[in-house]
Design a protein around this nucleic acid. Structure first.
Lengths: 223, 223
DNA sequence: TACGCTCTCAAACGGTCGTTTGAAACGGAC
DNA sequence: GTCCGTTTCAAACGACCGTTTGAGAGCGTA
């Protein structure tokens, strides 16, 4: 049984995985720049030089922290998208749920810290990180944009792009700045700590926004 | 005429204001942590020690950078809110515009860099900065929440809080991560560089979201 | 036992950080 | 001119940063 549970990672507590876990939690707590390799290796119970042995540099560690979670995350998104019925009446809600749920669930389950980290990732000023993130998300964006385009034929491509951007913004703000909601609501709204409630509110709000009448006609290239 | 144009600030180029300007642009470009005092003072044409003379510490400079813009920004928001007709058919749109326009305009006019900086400010991990920002915004949140509560009596307080949070998230993402929109749209969407287009799309999308049917009844305290 | 490979370790490297200091320059009041 | 409060300046402080080094532990294989 012990051999069964250690499915892929964590042979015992592998230095490499410990470093990724420690970096993930510290990045989400203090930011990337403010998390020194000495803090990370100390929390991981590893030697300072271990980072450069396993990842080459701090930059390499940052990339590894993100790509470890991002690949499964976007794969699940696309899997859920494939399972959507685009001809159903609630097609928009289904697609939104497929986009939102994996990240929101991640905030609760095994990768608690990664949700917060991901919510702030796109605001990181590092050019290298941005480039990596945009490549990692490019197919997800393409596929979801195509689904929305079929569901909302009254929208031109540009208008669709704007609305998709707002969807991503509301999601990022929800998982990245949940402390705001908690403070301003006096603790009444759970924030990202209750992903089911967050998901429900997000889908209701964003589906209405996506379905709003077009500002411009469905043919966009003109102006 | 020369004496007329230097209305309030910038007697000539005052060291203090130069430092604020340099810090603002560098913070928005590289983030707060990554902007060293040596970079800031060099861009401002000032001596390294000038920061501590005028602001006491880097933390003091950060506070000053934000409060210089935030007070006028939120005052304008409340002024525009007071001018809204809450009984009009487009009351929701009016209130949204009052909330969104000042920051979006700021991204274009005199404080070009501050928009981007503000869009990322709430994701900053510094506890002191967060506390300062939340205090600076507390009245704005209270007043706009009250306006939305009158406009949308079908929503309970908690549901209203969630939706307000999504509004803030879409706005923050728009001004803070406009590079995403520009890249993914292949340059077709101007991002925050065209505040009028951004404002129009935001208002259309968010108004529809705010007006969406309630998930729970208007009486919230029950569950 | 000896080898080769993977991994860990303590120690140090040069560099940059925020901050402090004490003296020099400025500019209006007398 | 002399004084005094305000502001600027070059230089240095100790601390911490990411990175590198070279030695050595652990271990399966021959």
């Amino acid at each position: 049984m012990a051999a069964e549970t250690e499915t892929q990672t964590e042979h015992v507590a592998g230095t490499r995985e410990s470093l990724l876990d420690a970096a993930e939690s510290l990045f989400s707590e203090h930011g990337i720049q403010a998390s020194s390799l000495r803090m990370i290796t100390q929390r991981a119970g590893a030697n300072l030089a271990a980072v450069h042995y396993h990842f080459g540099s701090k930059e390499g560690l940052v990339r590894a922290v993100f790509s470890r979670r991002l690949k499964p995350l976007n794969e699940e998104r696309l899997r859920l998208l494939d399972a959507c019925d685009l001809d159903a009446e609630d097609g928009v809600e289904q697609v939104l749920r497929a986009f939102l749920e994996p990240l929101l669930r991640m905030s609760r389950e095994r990768a608690r810290d990664f949700g917060r980290l991901m919510g702030r990732a796109f605001t990181e000023p590092s050019e290298e990180l941005r480039t990596m993130l945009m490549e990692e998300f490019s197919e997800t964006v393409r596929r979801f944009m195509a689904a929305f385009a079929r569901l909302l034929p009254h929208l031109g491509e540009r208008e669709l792009m704007w609305r998709y951007h707002f969807v991503a913004g509301a999601m990022a703000h929800t998982v990245g700045c949940s402390y705001l909601l908690e403070k301003y609501s006096g603790g009444a709204c759970g924030g990202a700590s209750n992903p089911d409630e967050a998901l429900g509110h997000l889908v209701t709000f964003l589906a209405a926004g996506m379905r709003a009448p077009a500002r411009t006609g469905p043919v966009s290239p003109g102006e």
